[in-house]
Amino acid sequence: MAELANLARPAAADAPLLSIEGVAKNFGSFRAVDRLSLDIRAGEFFALLGPSGCGKTTLLRMLAGFETPDEGRILLDGRDIAPVLPHERPVNMMFQNYALFPHLSVRDNIAFGLKRAGMARAGIDTRVSEMVALVKLDGMEKRKPDQLSGGQRQRVALARSLARRPKVLLLDEPLAALDKKLRESTQQELMELQRSLGMTFIVVTHDQEEAMTMANRIGVMNAGRLEQVAAPRDLYEAPASRWVAEFVGDVNLFDGEVASHEHHRLTVASRNGGNIVATEPRQLVAGTGVSVAIRPEKVKLWHDGGPASDAGRSQAINRLAGIVADVSYLGGATVYKVKLDSGAVVRASMANTTRLDIHTYSAGQRVVAWFTPDDCVVLER
C-alpha cells in the first residue's frame, strides 16, 4: 500500500501534470470542444461541470484517447499524448455504466487490464488483493456483477480503473446511478481514496453539489468552452459572469446601469428593484450595463415596518418591499419567494435554526427583503 501512495508526483515543482493547450473537437459541423486550454496539477481532484452537451465528456474522452483532437495538444508530464493509443497511456477511465464484464467475477474484472498488459500471475494476484482491500470488497472476489449492489459494482469498476496505477484517473458521472444516501457516502470514500493515493482525479458531472463537495477546483463548461476555473467557494461567491452566477446555485439577478461610484460603493439603477448599492472596488463608468447578483441565503426578511433596532436599519441599505408569494419548507432551510412591488420576484433562503416556527413568514404576508452592499456581486454585461 505504501507504493500506492506514490502514484502521481509532478515532474517539476511548479509544472502542471496535465496541460490541455488549445484543444478543439468537431463532429461534422458541430464544435463540441472549442480551443480549450487548461492546466491540472498533480494530486488534484478536478471537476468538469456543465449542462448536457457542453463538451465535458468529449474532453474526457480525448484525455482517455477514445477521441482525437482536431486541434491543439494534450501534454502529460510534458509529453504529447494525443497520438498515443488508449491502452498505452498512463490514464484510465471509469465509465458511467461501469462497463463490467457480466460473466467475470469481481477478481477477474479487476485483473482484466493487468492480464492484457502482460503482468505475471503472481503480480496480478498481489495487485488484485491490494485493490480489493482498498475498495473494501473483501470476501466478494468470486461474485459476479449481478450478485452485487449498485454501490459494490461501482467499487469494482473503481478498483479495475486503479489496478494499473495510472497517473490520472478519469471518472465520467461515476455516481449517477446511485441513490442519494449512497451517493453522499461514496463521495466521501472517493475523496478519502484520492487523498490517500495522492493521485490526480478528473471527474465529469452535471451535479453541482457533487462537484463542490469533492473537487479542489472546478472548471465550468458552456458550449465547448471554459467559462471559469476556480475553487468551489470562489466559484459560488465570485462568479466571473452572469451565466456562471445563474448556472451555479440559485441567485437573484437585478439588471441595470451604473448610476454612481464613490468610495468602493456602486449604485445601480436596476429595472426591477430600484437603486441597489453594492461594494465594488473596480471603477465602472456611469451608464455601464451591469447585473447585480445576490444569493438567496444572503437575503433577509423583516415583517412590514422593519427591524426594531437602529443597528438593523443601518445594515439594510438595500430594502425591497413586497408580499410573500410562496413558502417552501426544505428541512434545513425555508425558501421564500417574495413578489416585489415592482413585480419582480426575489428568493430568500433562511436557515431553520430553531425547531419552532418563531421567525417564519406566511404566504400573503407583507415583508421587506433586505441585503447589504457586501452581499452583492457586480457582473458586467
Rank of each mutant, 00 (worst) to 15 (best):
Leu100Arg: 01
Asp179Thr: 07
Ala117Cys: 09
Asp326Thr: 09
Lys144Val: 08
Gln152Trp: 08
Leu7Met: 12
Glu67His: 09
Asp34Lys: 04
Val23Gly: 00
Arg233Lys: 09
Lys337Trp: 03
Asp341Lys: 14
Gly343His: 12
Ser52Pro: 05
Leu114Gln: 01
Met191Asn: 12
Asp77Trp: 02
Val299Ser: 02
Glu280Phe: 03
Asp179Tyr: 11
Pro145His: 04
Leu253Trp: 00
Arg165Gly: 11
Leu134Gly: 04
Asp207Gly: 05
Asp80Gly: 05
Glu380Leu: 13
Ala2Gln: 14
Val128Leu: 05
Ala308Ile: 04
Arg282Ile: 14
Phe247Thr: 10
Phe30Thr: 15
Asn318Pro: 12
Asp341Val: 05
Gly28Trp: 00
Gly312Lys: 01
Leu7Asn: 04
Ala286Asp: 13
Asn252Gly: 07
Arg121Ala: 15
Ala2Trp: 06
Val128His: 01
Leu137His: 05
Ala122Gly: 11
Phe66Leu: 12
Glu67Ile: 05
Gly43Ile: 10
Gln194Thr: 13
Asp39Thr: 11
Ile110Arg: 03
Gly331Pro: 08
Gly55Val: 05
Ala293Gly: 07
Glu297Arg: 02
Ala316Cys: 12
Glu237Tyr: 13
His359Cys: 09
Trp243His: 12
Pro16Met: 06
Phe371Glu: 03
Leu182Arg: 07
Gly28Lys: 02
Asp326Pro: 01
Glu173Arg: 01
Val204Ala: 03
Ala333Pro: 02
Val327Ile: 07
Asn318Leu: 03
Asp146Gly: 06
Glu173Leu: 08
Ala240Lys: 11
Arg79Leu: 12
Trp302Ala: 09
Ser161Met: 08
Thr353His: 06
Lys181Leu: 11
Gln208Arg: 05
Asn92Ala: 10
Arg183Met: 09
Gly305Met: 04
Asp304Tyr: 12
Arg31Ile: 03
Ala13Met: 12
Val203Arg: 05
Asp250Thr: 15
Pro296Cys: 11
Gly78Thr: 10
Pro281Gln: 10
Val168Thr: 03
Ala286Val: 14
Thr58Val: 07
Pro239Arg: 04
Lys300Gly: 11
Asn6Gly: 15
Leu379Pro: 04
Glu280Gln: 15
Ala230Thr: 00
Arg73Ile: 14
Ala223Phe: 15
Leu197Tyr: 02
Tyr98Gln: 07
Phe45His: 02
Ala176Asp: 13
Lys339Gly: 11
Gly78Cys: 07
Leu134Trp: 10
Thr360Tyr: 04
Asp357Trp: 02
Pro69Gln: 10
Gly53Lys: 05
Glu141Met: 02
Ser149Arg: 03
Ala120Asn: 13
Ser129Gln: 14
Arg89Trp: 10
Ser29His: 11
Gly305Gln: 06
Ile81Glu: 06
Gly287Leu: 07
Asn26Trp: 13
Ile294Trp: 00
Phe112Arg: 01
Asn275Lys: 15
Ala2Ser: 14
Pro174Trp: 00
Gly72Leu: 08
Ala245Val: 03
Ser161Cys: 09
Leu330Asn: 12
Thr57Arg: 02
Gly50Trp: 03
Leu76Gly: 07
Asp357Ser: 13
Arg31Ser: 14
Leu17Met: 01
Asp14Val: 06
Val368Pro: 05
Ala223Pro: 08
Gly123Trp: 08
Arg282Glu: 13
Phe45Pro: 06
Gly53Val: 05
